[in-house]
Design a protein around this nucleic acid. Structure first.
Length: 853
RNA sequence: GGGCGGCUAGCUCAGUUGGGAGAGCGCCAGCUUGACAUGCUGGAGGUCGGGGGUUCGAAACCCUCGCCGCCCACCA
C-alpha cells in the first residue's frame, strides 16, 4: 500500500482518493458490530430518514456528527454499533406518490389498492437505494448488515407487539373526539402534525334572535360552521349577558333552537363576548358542549364538503358554503358587520390542506403513566441534552401532554391489529387470528385504520435490535448511547422514544441527545425542496470532496444559532485536506525511514527545542479534540486538530525541522512521523478518506487508521518550558519579518544581534527561521520590541514606520495597564494573581518601549 | 398569549467559571523561498444591536428597548 512520495500527485484530488476506501472498509467488515465483544458498547441507531426522497443538508449534518462519534469510539476501544434504517413515513410518502399520480393524470383510487401498494414498494426500493448510496459517499460508517426498515416483517411484529402491550395495559381506547382532520388526506392527524399559518380573513358579526325577544350578536370567521351550531355561550361573569344565560337563541337560516349557556372559557373581550358553540367543528366548542351536554352535529363530509341534508348548502365545499351563507345572512338581515381579521389557521404539515376540526371515532393512547416515567427519568438526570436548553422544550411539552391519537385513515402504514368478528366480538393480537377467540367464527375483518408513523418510530432504539425477542443485539446494544436530530422532532420523536423505552425496556433509550442547528440558504431563507432552495449534499461532495463537506458539517452542526450556508467554508476545508496531503509529501520525501518506536506511536520525549515544542502542542491538541467530541462540541474538536496541523505543525515545526529532515536526521524524522501519525488519527473521525489515504502512505502502517488507537492523554510531552522558549522564537521571528517587509528588504538576508541573556538555542533558531545571520555586533539597526536586540537588512530603509507603529501600540497598552494598576481599588479587590500578571505585563511593555526608543 | 435563541471585522461564524477582542473567506501589499500559488509572509478593518445597572473590571451577569428567527398554545 505504501508508495514512493514521488508517486504522490502534487495536489490533493478528493475524487481520486475517496473512491476506493469505503468499499475496502466495508469488505473488511470494519463497520460490523460484534454483540459478543468484551469491549464496552457504544450504540447509535441512525434516525431513519423518511423514504420520501434523497438526503438533504440536515441529514448530512446529522449523519456526520453521529459518524464522528462512532468512528471516535471505535478508535477509543469501544464495540460500536451504528445501525442504519429508513422510515416508511406513511402520510408523507402517500403524499409524494399521490402527487406523482396527479401529474400522471390519475389517482390512487383509479389505480386501486393493490397497484398502489406495488408502486409504493417500488418507490421504497429506489429511494432506499439512493439514501444508502448517499451515506456511503459521505463515508458514514453504518453497519449495513443490520439495515432496518419500519415496514420489514420483523419490525412490523415489534409494532404490533407494542400495540397489544399498550392495549393490555388498558391504555388504548377508541372514542369519538374532535380531531385535526385533513380533508385532502382524509385522515386525522395529531396536534404536532398541524402547521399553523397566518391567514387574512374576515370576521363576521351575526345576529342570533333570542326567544322571547331580543338578540345576541356573535362574531365568527367560519360562518359556514354555524349550520352545525348547537348552542350559544357567554362568560358567566359578563354583566352584558347576565340575563341571557338559560334562554334559547334561534339559529338563523336553520331555525334550530340553541340553549344559551354560561362557560368560563368564553373570552369577554373577544368579538362581542358571545360565542356560537359548534361542538362538531371546533375543539374549544367541543369541550364547552361536553360540559353543558350540548348536541354534537357533524356538518361536514370527510372530504371537506358540507353535510347538511335539507339545506341549500348541502354538498358544497366549505369555502363556497361560506360565501352562500354570508350572502343569505346579508339578504335576510342577520349580518351586522364584517371586519378584516388576521389569525392562525391550521394546515396539514404534509399536504398543506387547511385542517378541519371535526368529530371522529379514533384510536387513542393514554400517556399519563409513560409521561410520568419520562419526567422522573429526567429528574434523575438519565438523559443529557446538548445544548442543555432543549431539555426544557421537551419537559414543557411533556407536562402538557394529552392522549395521543395514534390512528390514521391512510392507505399506507401499519394496520391496527384489531379484528372484529361477525358476531361483534373484538380480538386484539400480534398475529392475525384464524377465528374469533370468543365464538370461534372465522369471519373476521381487520380494523381499517393504520398507525401514526411516529408510533413505529417511537420504538426505534429497541425494535431495530429485535425486540420483543431477547436477541443478543438487544442485550448488548440497549440502551443506545446517543441520539442526534433536528429540533423540530424533539416532541414528535425523541420524547416518544424515551417514553416507550422506559415502558418496554425499563431504561431510557440513550443517555445523550444532541440537537443540531438548521442550515439556511445564504440569504437566510429556509431550505426547502418546494421553494427550490434546497441543496443536494452530493453536489458539494462532487465539488469539494466528502471530507471537506464533513469537516464543515462538524464545524457548524452544534452552532448555538442556525447558520447561513457559506460555501467558502467548505472550500477552506478542501484546502486543509490539500495542506495535509502536502505535509505528508514533505515528510515522506526525507531520506531514510522512521524508527520502529515512531511507527508504533510510542516516541519518547526529545532534546531539540522545536521537537519538544511540537510534541507538547500535539498533546494539547489531542486533549482538546477528545474533550470536544465527548462534549458534543465538534467545532472545538476539529478546530483544535486543524489549528495544530496547519498553524503549528506545518507553519512552524516543518519549517523549523525542514533542513534536518532533508539531511535525514533520524530524530526529526521520528518526530515528524509521530506528529503526522497522531494528527491523522485525530482527524480521522472528521475526514475519514484523506486520513486513511495518507495513513496508508506512511511507512509501517499495514492496518487502517480507522482501526488505529485514539491518541490518549500524552502528559509526558507537555513541556511548558519548551512552549515558553518557542513562543519567544515566534515573537522574534515575526517581528523581524514585519521589519523586513516594512523596510522593503529582500526575503532573505540581514543580520540579527540579540543581547544577553538569551537562550542560545532560541537565538539560533530565531535567526534561522527569520533568514538572518546571527552576529555578535552590528552598526545601528532596528531595535526589537520582543527581546533586547537589533536587526539590519542588506538593502532597503530602516523600517522606521513599522517601529513607530509598534511603539504607539505598546504605549497605548501600557497606558491602559498602568491606569488599572494605579487604581487602588483594583489592587485591593482584584485577585492577586491578576494583579501580578498585569504588573509583569507592564514591565514587559516598559522594557520593549525603552528598547524601541 | 407563553417560552427560547440570535444580534461580535465587509461576509459566515467562534469566544464554557467576568480580567490582554478571534478564525475562515474577502480586501491591501510583498513573495514562482526545493511540501503545498488549493501556498508563504506582512497588513488594514470591530463604540461586541441601543440604553441603564451590578463590579476594581462586562462581549460575557441583571433590567429595559429594538429588530431577526424558532418552538409551544383550544380566543371564536
Amino acid at each position: 500500500m505504501n508508495m514512493n512520495p514521488s508517486e504522490m500527485p502534487k495536489a490533493f484530488d478528493p475524487q481520486a482518493i475517496e473512491a476506493g476506501w469505503y468499499a475496502r472498509w466495508e469488505a473488511d467488515g470494519l463497520f460490523i458490530a460484534d454483540a459478543h465483544s468484551k469491549k464496552p458498547k457504544y450504540t447509535i441507531c441512525l434516525p431513519p430518514p423518511n423514504i420520501t426522497g434523497a438526503l438533504h443538508m440536515g441529514h448530512a449534518l446529522n449523519h456526520t456528527m453521529q459518524d464522528i462519534c462512532a468512528r471516535y469510539r471505535r478508535m477509543a476501544g469501544y464495540e460500536v454499533l451504528y445501525l442504519p434504517g429508513t422510515d416508511h413515513a406513511a402520510i408523507a410518502t402517500q403524499n409524494v406518490i399521490e402527487k406523482q399520480l396527479t401529474a400522471e393524470g390519475t389517482t390512487k383510487e383509479q389505480l386501486g389498492r393493490e397497484a398502489f401498494v406495488e408502486r409504493v414498494d417500488k418507490w421504497y426500493r429506489e429511494v432506499g437505494d439512493t439514501i444508502v448510496a448517499q451515506d456511503k459517499i459521505l463515508g458514514i460508517s453504518l453497519d449495513w448488515t443490520r439495515l432496518r426498515f419500519t415496514m420489514d416483517e420483523r419490525y412490523v411484529r415489534s409494532v404490533m407487539t407494542a400495540f397489544v402491550a399498550f392495549y393490555e395495559r388498558g391504555w388504548i381506547y377508541r372514542a369519538p373526539r374532535i380531531v385535526n382532520w385533513c380533508p385532502h388526506d382524509q385522515s386525522a392527524i395529531s396536534d404536532l402534525e398541524v402547521d399553523w399559518q397566518e391567514h387574512h380573513d374576515t370576521l363576521y358579526y351575526i345576529r342570533y334572535p333570542v326567544e322571547g325577544g331580543g338578540e345576541v350578536v356573535i362574531a365568527t370567521v367560519r360562518p359556514e360552521t354555524m349550520l352545525a351550531d348547537t348552542g350559544v355561550a357567554v362568560n358567566p361573569t359578563d354583566e352584558r349577558y347576565r340575563s341571557l344565560a338559560g334562554k334559547t337563541a334561534i339559529l338563523p337560516l336553520v331555525g334550530r333552537k340553541l340553549p344559551i349557556v354560561a362557560d368560563a372559557a368564553v373570552e369577554k373581550d373577544f368579538g362581542t363576548g358571545a360565542l356560537k358553540v359548534t361542538p362538531g367543528h371546533d375543539s374549544m366548542d367541543y369541550e364547552i358542549g361536553q360540559r353543558h351536554s350540548l348536541e354534537v352535529i357533524n356538518g361536514m363530509h370527510p372530504d371537506g364538503r358540507m353535510d347538511v341534508p335539507g339545506l341549500p348548502y348541502d354538498g358544497l365545499p366549505a369555502l363556497e358554503a361560506r360565501e352562500r351563507v354570508v350572502a343569505d345572512l346579508k339578504a335576510e338581515g342577520f349580518l351586522v358587520k364584517e371586519e378584516p381579521y388576521t389569525h392562525e389557521v391550521g394546515h396539514c404539515d404534509r399536504c398543506h390542506a387547511v385542517i378541519e376540526p371535526l368529530v371522529s371515532e379514533q384510536w387513542w393512547l393514554r400517556m399519563e403513566t409513560m409521561r410520568d416515567k419520562a419526567l422522573a427519568a429526567s429528574a434523575a438526570g438519565k438523559v443529557r441534552w446538548h445544548p442543555e436548553r432543549y431539555e426544557r422544550t421537551y419537559l414543557d411539552w411533556l407536562r402538557g401532554l394529552r392522549d395521543w391519537n395514534i390512528g390514521r385513515q391512510l392507505w399506507l402504514g401499519h394496520r391496527v391489529p384489531v379484528y372484529n368478528c361477525d358476531n361483534g366480538h373484538q380480538i386484539v393480537a400480534v398475529e392475525r387470528p384464524n377465528r374469533c377467540t370468543e365464538c370461534g367464527s372465522s369471519r373476521l375483518t381487520q380494523d381499517p385504520d393504520v398507525l401514526d408513523t411516529w408510533f413505529s418510530a417511537a420504538l426505534w432504539p429497541f425494535a431495530t435490535l429485535g425486540w420483543p425477542e431477547e436477541t443478543d443485539d438487544l442485550k448488548a446494544f440497549y440502551p443506545n448511547s446517543m441520539n442526534s436530530t433536528a429540533r423540530e422532532i424533539i416532541n414528535l420523536w425523541v420524547s416518544r422514544m424515551i417514553m416507550t423505552g422506559l415502558e418496554f425496556m425499563g431504561e431510557v433509550p440513550f443517555s445523550d441527545v444532541a440537537i443540531h442547528c438548521v442550515v439556511q440558504t445564504p440569504e437566510g431563507q429556509r431550505q426547502s425542496k418546494s421553494l427550490g432552495t434546497g441543496m443536494d449534499p452530493r453536489q458539494l461532495i462532487a465539488k469539494y470532496g466528502a471530507d471537506a463537506v464533513r469537516a464543515w458539517a462538524a464545524s457548524v452542526a452544534m452552532s448555538s444559532q442556525d447558520v447561513r450556508f457559506d460555501e467558502s467554508r467548505i472550500e477552506g476545508y478542501r484546502r486543509f485536506c490539500n495542506k495535509l496531503w502536502n505535509a505528508t509529501r514533505l515528510v515522506l520525501s526525507s531520506p531514510g525511514s522512521p524508527s520502529a518506536e515512531a511507527r508504533l506511536g510510542v516516541l519518547e520525549a526529545q532534546e531539540h527545542l522545536e521537537d519538544r515544542w511540537v510534541l507538547s502542542r500535539l498533546a494539547n491538541a489531542s486533549t482538546a479534540a477528545t474533550a470536544g467530541i465527548e462534549g458534543f462540541e465538534f467545532q472545538d474538536a476539529i478546530g483544535a486538530a486543524y489549528a495544530f496541523a496547519w498553524n503549528e505543525f506545518c507553519d512552524w515545526y516543518l519549517e523549523a525541522a525542514k533542513e534536518r529532515l532533508r539531511a535525514g536526521d533520524a530524530v526529526a524524522q521520528d518526530v515528524a512521523y509521530f506528529c503526522l501519525d497522531k494528527v491523522l488519527r485525530l482527524l480521522h473521525p472528521f475526514m475519514p478518506f484523506v486520513t486513511e489515504e495518507l495513513w496508508s502512505r506512511l511507512p509501517g502502517h499495514p492496518d487502517y487508521v480507522m482501526r488505529a488507537e485514539w491518541p490518549q492523554q500524552q502528559d509526558k510531552f507537555v513541556d511548558p518550558a519548551a512552549e515558553e522558549s518557542f513562543a519567544q522564537v515566534m515573537r522574534i521571528v515575526e517581528e523581524v519579518r514585519a521589519h523586513r517587509q516594512a523596510a522593503g528588504a529582500p526575503p532573505r538576508g540581514g543580520s540579527l544581534k540579540l543581547e544577553h541573556p538569551i537562550d542560545r538555542v532560541v537565538a539560533t533558531l530565531s535567526a534561522r527561521l527569520a533568514w538572518v545571520e546571527l552576529v555578535d555586533d552590528i552598526e545601528g539597526g532596528i531595535p526589537l520590541a520582543a527581546t533586547p536586540g537589533r536587526v539590519t537588512f542588506p538593502s532597503g530603509g530602516e523600517g522606521d514606520a513599522r517601529r513607530k507603529a509598534e511603539l504607539k501600540r505598546l504605549k497605548e497598552e501600557l497606558e491602559r495597564t498602568g491606569a488599572k494598576l494605579a487604581n487602588p481599588e483594583f489592587r485591593a479587590k482584584a485577585p492577586p494573581e491578576i494583579v501580578r500578571k498585569l504588573e509583569e505585563r507592564a514591565a514587559e511593555l516598559r522594557a520593549a518601549i525603552d528598547r524601541l526608543e
